[in-house]
Every structure is written in structure tokens, then in C-alpha cells.
Amino acid sequence: MSRARTFIVLGTLGLVVLGSLVGWTRYESRRWKRDDLPQLRALSSRLHLSDLALWTEARYTRHPSQADLFSAFQDSPGAPEHFPAGSIVSPSPVLTDPLSIVASGSGGRLRDAGSDGRRRAMPEERSPDVVAARGSSSGWAFTP
């Protein structure tokens, strides 16, 4: 019976250590949310930061959310992926679920032939007021 008791005591000790670590992570998580997160959000908001500064290998790994539709091999079609970070990102859903391209509504309708004889697919009709609003004067830091 002594072996069984020793095992139960050691097992309980292990569970206590594990439980303490889980408790510590919850405490640290709350502390981060309370102390660091507001400052980090303010910094991200002030500098308009949109990506984590993790991979500085290429523009599409430094700013994956801002890249020209993130995909590997984009520096040179047909070339092997240059950067290790490129292999961390999962492939486009289109590759694993071809139906998603239909669901995303990437189609459009064909516009009548123009003067150049080409028929163009238009995503949607442009509203006249929006078209008129284009080309206004320049300047920056706009507010309504």
C-alpha cells in the first residue's frame, strides 16, 4: 500500500503545481489586460499600427494583413517560397474549399461592350452621387 500512497501523494503534488501554474497564467493574463493592454492599444491607435512586428523578411511577412492578398510565392510567380515565415501561414481557403470562391461572390456581371469593344465584368453599379464625389481637392487628415 505504501507505493500506492506515495504515488497518490506525488500525483496530487503534481496536480497542485499544475494548478498553481494555471492560476498564475490567469493572474498574469488579467494583469496584462489591466496594465499593459490599454497602453498598447493607445500606441497601436496613435501610430495606426496594423500588424505584429514579428517577421521582417519580406513586406508580405512584415505586414501580412496589408500585403497584396497574402499568398506565398508572390515575389515571383512560379518561384519557390523564399521565406520561412511564408510556410507558417495556412493556404488560401480556395485551395481547400473551391466552393468558397462562389460563396464570396467574387463574380460580377458583364457590362455592355464599350467603345473599345471589350465587355467588362462590373462588381456592382456605381451610384451617381458616389461617382460625382470623386476627384475632390487634396489635403490631409480629413474629418467630415
Binding site: 512586428a53 514579428l54 517577421w55 521582417t56 523578411e57 521565406f83 520561412p84 515565415a85 507558417i88
Partner: peptide, 11 residues
């Protein structure tokens, strides 16, 4: 090292 890849400036 796996996450870092070729990034010279990795935090």
C-alpha cells in the same frame, strides 16, 4: 527559431 525564419530584427 522556427517562428523567426530569416528575420534579423525578431522581438
Amino acid at each position: 527559431p522556427m517562428l523567426r525564419g530569416w528575420s534579423v530584427l525578431f522581438p
